[in-house]
Nucleic acid binder design. Structure first.
Length: 454
RNA sequence: GGCCCCGUCGUCUAGUGGCCUAGGACGCAGCCCUCUCAAGGCUGAGAUCGCGGGUUCGAAUCCCGCCGGGGCUACCA
């Protein structure tokens, strides 16, 4: 009987959730849904120095926004300290771990020395071979048995690491908290995680964690999948500090649709083997497979995301787009917003751009300086529209007639009108600029610009 | 330094020995449409497949070396 799939994501609340978090979560969810498995959310909050509770909130909020819902959790490592203590005690008792009293300075000196002698650094094991007399603060080190560690990576096949190159590493810090290399494999084992799907930066961490699992006598995960990293535009790895723009909350604020971001992220590093680029989530679940995942990192491309986001915006129904837009233009009344949608829909790449197209509705632009001829045409425009029904189509018909009568081209006729009404060089079609404005406001703006009595 | 991963148009990629004079998408350029900006339609530029050796009748695809990028090597995760 096949064991049911259990996967997890384990972000640490030392910063906002970023693109990498989303990407890893996505692949986990895709696999979980496809295999009818369980997706667990665990918060790896063992870094006392850098953890912040508000970051955890941000992570949950980001994942929820992206609809990457977890089935179990969030479990917090900070609430499982007893477990790690117990597991560490087992290792200590079995002689598979030992107390280390070395100070950071001493360790630093060891490292420097190794570097000086041009030999690869490995902890000297002095606290194992010569346990110091003094008591006091100590960390717990795992006694690396050496030999070879092998495991299967779902992308790369059989991986083999030489454990003789790995020094004894710390599993419990002197503050009593477990390190990542310890807590993570312990939890994965206890939570019966079957497939560890995570970023490629963890590929060479895997042997550490496998040795811990083996040392404890737990069952190993069935397989690992180390997914390609998302790179910044310059090819470097995305980091929270260097790349604040990768904050997922920011994507929401800029007006990216969560399903568009998901679609883009899925394509970044994975490809379906067909030329399809736009996928529903269900289609992704069906189509996803690890053997079509890229092995190398991929740069994040805003342009392509913008295009996909535009595609998604254009697919939305009038009601859906209205709902999505509302938070971005809360100044605007519902009816006006709905009337603007047809003109907006083909123009937006991000929802927030709606503000640039609509803010003339609640912000009076300064009247432009116009010459006598132009004033005449503005006046003609006023005459043309002042008695027509106030909807874009009627306005357009009236204006077209006025243009024909004026003897000048549309561009020459419309440009000063657009300028007067919106104060902008780029705007919605002129009849929308009229129609969205209350009639009296539109006429007043024109009259003022043409220096006419209102 | 050591270990590991990766290397096809600017970017994301297709490609697993002949179908590749290397395909698609984004972006870019031009044209059409057009009151601006988009959207849409059409056309186009853009990769000697990191480099050098092999293997083979034939290599982007296999082998070796080199170079380049990234990751790990923390009492960060």
């Amino acid at each position: 009987m096949a064991v049911s799939v259990r996967v997890r994501i384990a972000p640490s609340p030392t910063g906002f959730a970023h693109l990498g978090t989303a990407s890893t979560a996505l692949y986990n969810v895709l696999f979980a849904r496809q295999q009818k498995g369980t997706f667990v959310l665990r918060i790896d909050d063992t870094d006392l120095e850098r953890n912040r509770p508000e970051y955890e909130l941000l992570i949950l909020e980001s994942l929820t926004w992206l609809a990457l819902e977890w089935d179990e959790g969030p479990l917090r490592q900070s609430e499982r300290l007893d477990i790690y203590k117990e597991e560490a005690a087992k290792l200590l008792q079995a002689g598979k771990a030992y107390r280390c009293f070395c100070t950071p300075e001493e360790l630093e000196a060891e490292r420097k020395q190794a570097q000086l002698e041009k030999r690869p650094y490995k902890y000297s094991r002095r606290c194992l071979t010569n346990p110091p007399e003094g008591r006091g603060e100590f960390a717990v080190r795992f006694r690396v048995p050496g030999g070879e560690v092998t495991f299967t990576d779902m992308l790369r096949g059989e991986m083999k690491f030489d454990a003789d190159l790995i020094g004894d590493f710390i599993i419990v810090k002197s503050d009593g908290y477990p390190t990542y290399q310890f807590a993570s494999p312990v939890d994965d084992a206890l939570m019966k995680i079957t497939h560890v799907i995570r970023g490629e930066e963890h590929l060479s961490n895997t042997p550490y964690q496998l040795m811990v699992v083996d040392g404890l006598g737990y069952e190993r995960p069935v397989a690992y999948a180390h997914m390609p990293l998302i790179l910044a535009g310059d090819g470097s790895k995305l980091s929270k500090r260097k790349h604040p723009e990768s904050n997922l909350i920011l994507f929401r604020e800029l007006g990216y649709l969560s399903e568009a971001l998901i679609n883009y992220l899925a394509l970044l590093g994975w490809n379906p083997g067909t030329e399809q680029e736009i996928f529903t989530f269900e289609q992704l679940v069906q189509a996803f497979s690890f053997d079509r995942v890229q092995h190398g990192g991929a740069r994040f491309d805003w342009e392509k995301l913008n295009w996909i986001n535009g595609e998604y915006i254009r697919k939305l129904s009038l009601d859906e787009l209205t709902d999505r837009l509302r938070p971005f233009v809360s100044q605007l009344d519902e009816a006006t917003l709905r009337r603007a949608i047809p003109a907006l829909q083909t123009r937006l790449h991000k929802l927030a751009e709606a503000v640039d197209y609509l803010d003339f509705l609640w912000t009076d632009p300064p009247p432009p300086a116009i010459d006598a001829d132009t004033a005449q045409r503005v006046k003609a425009a006023i005459e043309a529209v002042k008695d027509v029904p106030w909807d874009p189509d009627s306005i357009e018909a009236a204006l077209e007639k006025a243009v024909a009568d004026s003897g000048v081209g549309k561009g020459k006729f419309y440009t000063p009108l657009r300028d007067t009404l919106t104060g902008k060089k780029v705007a919605l079609p002129i009849h929308y600029c009229f129609g969205l404005l209350p009639k009296d406001v539109a006429l007043a703006r024109l009259a003022r610009a043409a220096n006419l009595p209102v």
